[in-house]
Design a binder for these strands. Sequence first.
DNA 1: CGAATATTTGAAGCGAATCAATGCAAGTGG
DNA 2: CCACTTGCATTGATTCGCTTCAAATATTCG
Lengths: 236, 236
Amino acid sequence: MIPSSICADCAVRDRALCASLSDEELLELNALGQRRHLSRGEALFWAGDDSAICANLLDGVLKIVASTSDGREQIVGLLYPADFAGQLFAAQVDFTIAALTDVDLCVFPRGAFEKVLQRHARMEHLLLQRTLAALGEARSRMLSLARKSAEEKVAGFLIDMTVRMADASSRATPGGPVTFDLPLSRGQMADILGLTIETVSRQMTKLRDAGVINLPGGRAITIADGPALIRRAEAA
Amino acid sequence: MIPSSICADCAVRDRALCASLSDEELLELNALGQRRHLSRGEALFWAGDDSAICANLLDGVLKIVASTSDGREQIVGLLYPADFAGQLFAAQVDFTIAALTDVDLCVFPRGAFEKVLQRHARMEHLLLQRTLAALGEARSRMLSLARKSAEEKVAGFLIDMTVRMADASSRATPGGPVTFDLPLSRGQMADILGLTIETVSRQMTKLRDAGVINLPGGRAITIADGPALIRRAEAA
DNA sequence: CGAATATTTGAAGCGAATCAATGCAAGTGG
DNA sequence: CCACTTGCATTGATTCGCTTCAAATATTCG
């Protein structure tokens, strides 16, 4: 076998939408997919572009960005490895998708991908479930954005990141202090939380001064008092 | 034929998810569905409840509500006739659904509905498309909630309502002054826009004083200067 | 009509944004 | 190796928009 088999060594073969397909069924997608790399900051496509492509995220983190005509921006979603990117069944895309880190993708022509979906109900079902999950998350974030204080937002975000990092490195020390590197800059955190860089920074400082977290330097953070962090994420 | 055929006279037969089914296929759902009425203010279910039922909305308006543990609330979605309500593939529901007006529903047991869905790919496909649309709308609202000023939010909301009312009554006078009754109280508008009642009221007054709208009394509103309203919905 | 509910209006306070430096680490080139 | 740039983060001072608290109308409905 010639290495036309890009799926064979795919890091997300059994977690992405492809997981719903057998090896034989996968051949079809294999022929369609194109590996592609984006450097930090590059966009996969811009809001308003024709909806020509979609993709599975293999590695890295993508942001989904909504913006006003005068340039204000809001990150409305993040995509992690095995997540699906793109807007199906639409002529144009409504949101910009760009790389927060260097990213590897498996890109498909949208039309062709939709046809594959049509023929594989199990894959469409999986996509439905993921879309429903994304909708629930979006709605939860609407509550945060609209009703929570800066402190609650930042604390909640740190908890989310802690959970995600714990999942990844599964260094399970429940309750105990955990240290990891935040994958996002203050500016990106602000874009997600609907705040400004300065406010995020001030809240981080406040949490440090309160002994809830430590900030050893760089992007590193230590959760010194998880329960206290949770309390602050839900404070009235 | 005995009137077991509740679908026969269904107002949303060809706009709801059911539109994807033939008359014969519909018999199955017909046997499953139960008509139900909710009075203004009543809940279909509460966040945290077991996800036991789902429903097609026949008439009226439902709100989807997210809330914090200390009682702050945010309306994260509205449902109109022919829309689908409920959380599939989940043990518990994450959001409260309640009636903004008196509503009529066609209620199904969730499990049974999912089985029907499984057997009818076209229906599942339609649900996927609707879910994708809802996700897009949720993300747009995230931008509004997080980044837009009170004036932009209120103006944008009034435009949305104008479009929706125009669709319904199709009294197409593009650009010309349009009058209709807002179906929502100031409080409900505030819950949707992430503002307080007072701020909504003040913005309405400001728009009236600027000659953009008229407020003849009660819930009535006249859009006196549509273009100006649009400008204010997008102002920097 | 009159009670209850919704809306408008006013005054004061607060939280986050904005404006403005300063600090800090990493890379670049002389 | 050090001066310099560049990008990111922190901190401070101030402003501004929205909320909060408090009445005073309107409106609806029994």
